[in-house]
Simulated scan of single mutants.
Amino acid sequence: MEAVIVRRLYDRILSLADHPRAGLWLFVLAFAESSFFPIPPDVLLITLSISKPQKSFYWALICLVGSVMGGVFGYFIGVQFMEIIGDKILSLYHLQEKYLVVQDLYRRYDAWAVAAGGFTPLPYKLFTITAGAFHINFFTFIIASILSRGGRFFLVSGLIYLVGPRVRYFIEKYFNLFTLIFALLLVAGYIVIKWVIK
């Protein structure tokens, strides 16, 4: 039943690409996904970038602003309303076990775990709400969010801009694997930098 509902939402979101205010819907989707909504904005970003490749980077920018602002909202939920709202959101998407994984990431890497979270297949809302719940440094949280989400969205739009519509199949089929590899490289880079600074 949940899969059917999500599929209907997915199809509905794709249909927004033809809406005259598609950019506004992209912003709303990116905002919502960062704090409480199940469908990632990539699906609409890819569709819009393919339909109007000359505006690919514009769509990525809208996605980035919406996602970071939504992340701030998710952070606020974690800080102020974790027991009332945050726990319910995590429970709705069956993320309680992953919450412990993210908790460990924050203990090791502080807010820079958000940078990895912006790329991994794990829902970004898990990282934003958890960051607030653990009172992660807000400024570092914002910077990490901009870097990770910006990297993700501009990478997708950039590939479509350079390669064209034929890259869509590759992105949709291997996106999770691709982003996971990038996240591992990001964490590895952080560890190397931290080791060099010491």
Rank of each mutant, 00 (worst) to 15 (best):
S34Y: 08
G118P: 00
I143T: 13
K52A: 15
N176G: 10
L126K: 01
P53S: 11
E172C: 11
S91E: 14
A17Y: 00
Y99P: 02
G66N: 06
F154C: 04
A115M: 14
I191S: 09
F138P: 01
P53L: 05
P20Y: 11
Q96H: 06
I46R: 00
P123L: 04
K194R: 15
V72R: 07
F182G: 00
Y99Q: 13
G151D: 08
I136C: 04
R7N: 15
G151R: 03
Y169S: 14
Y10A: 01
Q103S: 14
G66Y: 03
L90E: 00
L45A: 04
R152I: 01
S34N: 14
D11W: 06
I129S: 01
Y161I: 00
L126V: 12
N176H: 11
C63N: 03
S51Y: 00
V163W: 07
I160E: 03
I5V: 15
G86H: 04
P123A: 00
L14K: 09
A183F: 03
S56G: 14
P40C: 06
H19N: 14
F127A: 10
S91P: 00
I197L: 12
L92N: 07
P40Q: 09
S91V: 13
K198C: 10
G151W: 04
Y93V: 08
I193E: 10
F37A: 07
A144S: 13
C63M: 03
I85A: 14
V187E: 04
E33P: 02
V163G: 08
G150E: 08
Y161W: 11
L9Y: 08
L162Q: 10
H135F: 12
R149E: 08
S34V: 07
F178R: 01
A133C: 10
L48N: 05
I13T: 13
I5M: 11
F36G: 01
G118N: 05
V156M: 02
S35Q: 04
L26A: 10
F175I: 03
G189D: 09
T47N: 11
L48G: 08
V68S: 06
F170P: 05
I197T: 11
W195C: 00
V4H: 09
I136F: 01
Y99K: 14
V101N: 09
S34C: 10
V187Q: 03
K198S: 14
K194M: 12
A113L: 09
G158Y: 06
R168C: 06
L44F: 00
I84G: 08
R108S: 13
F27D: 05
S51L: 10
K98E: 10
S49R: 05
P40V: 10
F153P: 01
F153I: 04
D18I: 09
V6R: 12
L90Q: 05
M69A: 06
R21T: 07
L26F: 06
T130Q: 08
G86L: 05
Q96N: 12
G70W: 02
D104A: 14
L92E: 08
V65N: 06
A3Y: 01
